[in-house]
Design a protein around this nucleic acid. Structure first.
Length: 514
RNA sequence: GGCCCUGUCGUCUAGGGGCCUAGGACACGGCACUUUCACUGCCGCGACACGGGUUCGAAUCCCGUCAGGGUCACCA
């Protein structure tokens, strides 16, 4: 039998990092076993339902390479895949439960209910609601409902033990007597989450419900709903929640702005976002997938990291391709304790994936970041394109994410910003200026500025002068880039070219003399 | 507070009675390589929450304690 899994996001305008990890587990399981992964849009909450808020979610999945077999834009045999378009089926199902004696109308006013709940709370007792029409004959309940619409409650059986055999947690049980009868349909006919999700999962033929552990307690009510509907409950797998970095608390969708630390803000601004945009958009923070896309993370790196968060292939594999993950994924190797999101390890994994990307791909990936940061302008002429190619190549393994190019490329397109400390340390040092002038003369006479030729000229030159190549490196680097660290010196000079190199040495000499 | 879940280096994890003097990875510290940085290699730091049991033998099984988390709506 082929499996059918689903992920049911609300259109919130962003793809949450914790949610996508759950979706990924569903998807890997489905690809591994052969089956369909379904995207169902949970848009029953009118307030949160904005049509344009769906696109960022679909884009996020597409960017990561997680394709859905049925759902928005691709359709499928069980369309529609929007819960807001399936409302009638929830009503029908609820009435079916009333007719079969598994549900009943509840005429208790909300205020009275709240009062009861409050009283129980004060008395430090568990509040377990049981409506008066619980045992009214079904036909009578239906008549009541037709005459006077009311919320419908699910009848939780008494004296029973409810349980599931969770694929990740094993056997989990609840005493039915400790559960109040939940409302499944409001008086106006709108379904509640716990009911709509069951009705849909039955209708869509979902076989495996893999979801975050925060839903574990919902399962008991859902089990009752499946029973009432006469449907076989799917197999459940509750994956542990993802915690905030350095925390034991769930990585929440609320208050994501707090992750925008000064450092994160600086990074966002470096790639071209303004303070106003960072404030107004809710996807520009490290708890969303969009953030990593904006920072130039390779999607395969993010997927690798997220897949390894709570799941492992064996005792040593860290870096792996999507194919490897699919070929080896199973729920029994998913941990049952929460995992903390670690941005540093994510960066490392992303860097490992970047190393595996051929040069052409790295160049293509970097260009948009240079454009966005206004280092270069479109259309890009041939000379600029060639220059970028040389810079990216010279960066080598210094690039972990595409936006790292912004630490290395700008100096090749505009005058250096001289770091005062670097100038002090390297250019105002005893003998530094003499060395710099002499080197400039040598460079002026150099027949070629190709990397290999520069190296062949400068190294012996140092030797005959009794100067360490390291000292020359320091002086020339600061003189031409203003910084103490950067890509290889010979590459730097070569990309700059003779004229520009000599011009910068002149500028640096004047600055150092001040 | 009730119910439910979970406890292995700071973090992600391997382990499921003897292979454990607990392995790997990130981070951190050191050394080597090197024209700086990065990369790479080597070394180091660093954990079975606690207490009882079961057993010849427990990180592993059982019980309890403690700790952390999740959830308790006519939200999703």
């Amino acid at each position: 039998m082929t499996i059918r899994t689903r992920f049911a996001p609300s259109p919130t305008g962003y793809l949450h990092i914790g949610g996508v990890r759950t979706a990924l587990f569903n998807w890997l399981l489905t690809r591994r076993q052969g089956g369909q992964f379904i995207l169902r849009i949970d848009d029953t909450d009118a307030e949160r339902n904005r049509p344009e808020a769906l696109q960022p979610i679909l884009e996020g999945f597409r960017w990561l390479g997680i394709q859905w077999d049925e759902g928005p834009e691709v359709g499928g045999p069980h369309a529609p895949y929007f819960q807001s378009q399936r409302l009638q089926s929830y009503k029908d199902a609820a009435m079916q439960l009333v007719d079969s004696g598994h549900a009943y109308p509840c005429y208790l006013a909300k205020e009275a209910l709240d009062a009861e709940r409050k009283a129980a709370e004060v008395a430090k007792q568990n509040y377990i609601h049981r409506g008066v029409h619980r045992n009214t004959p079904p036909a009578e309940n239906r008549r009541l409902l037709e005459a006077n619409p009311a919320p419908i409650r699910l009848k939780v059986p008494e004296g029973r033990t409810l349980g599931i055999d969770d694929l990740i947690r094993g056997r989990v049980e609840w005493q039915a007597d400790l559960i109040g009868d939940p409302v499944i349909l409001r008086a106006d006919g709108r379904a509640l989450y716990n009911f709509a999700t069951v009705v849909d999962d039955v209708a869509l033929g979902i076989t495996h419900v893999v979801r975050a552990a925060e839903h574990l307690d919902n399962t008991k009510v859902q089990v009752v709903a499946y029973e009432g509907l006469g449907a076989k409950a799917p197999t459940f797998g509750h994956v542990p929640v993802v915690n905030e970095p350095n925390s034991k608390k769930k990585l929440s969708k609320r208050d994501m702005k707090k992750f925008v630390t000064p450092e994160i803000r600086a990074k966002l601004k470096l790639v071209g976002w303004t303070d106003a945009e960072i404030e107004s958009r809710d996807d520009l923070n490290p708890a969303t997938v969009a953030f990593y896309r904006e920072m130039g993370y390779l999607p395969s790196g993010l997927v690798n990291y997220l897949g390894r968060l709570g799941w492992s292939l064996d005792d040593k594999t860290e870096v792996m391709s999507l194919e490897t993950m699919i070929a080896n994924f199973s729920l029994d190797r998913v941990n049952d304790s929460p995992a903390s999101f670690d941005p540093e390890k994510l960066l490392w994994v992303a860097g490992e994936h970047m190393k595996m990307l051929p040069l052409a791909g790295r160049i293509t990936g970097c260009v948009p970041f240079l454009v966005r940061a206004k280092i270069i302008a479109e259309p890009i002429d041939e000379a600029t394109q060639a220059k970028i190619a040389r810079i990216v190549e010279a960066c080598g393994e210094r690039l972990k994410v595409f936006s790292d190019i912004l630490q290395h490329a700008p100096v090749f397109f505009r005058d250096p910003e001289y770091d005062p400390k670097a100038v002090d340390k390297r250019l105002r040092k005893e003998g530094a200026m003499d060395l710099l002038r002499a080197a400039a003369e040598e460079l002026k006479a150099a027949p070629s500025f190709a990397v290999a030729d520069l190296e062949q000229v400068l190294k012996p030159w140092c030797e005959t002068r009794g100067v360490k190549i390291g000292d020359l490196n320091h002086v020339l680097r600061v003189a031409t880039t203003g910084q103490q660290v950067g890509i290889g010196l010979f590459e730097t000079l070569s990309i700059l070219g003779k004229e520009e190199t000599l011009r910068r040495i002149e500028i640096a000499s004047q600055i150092a003399a001040k």
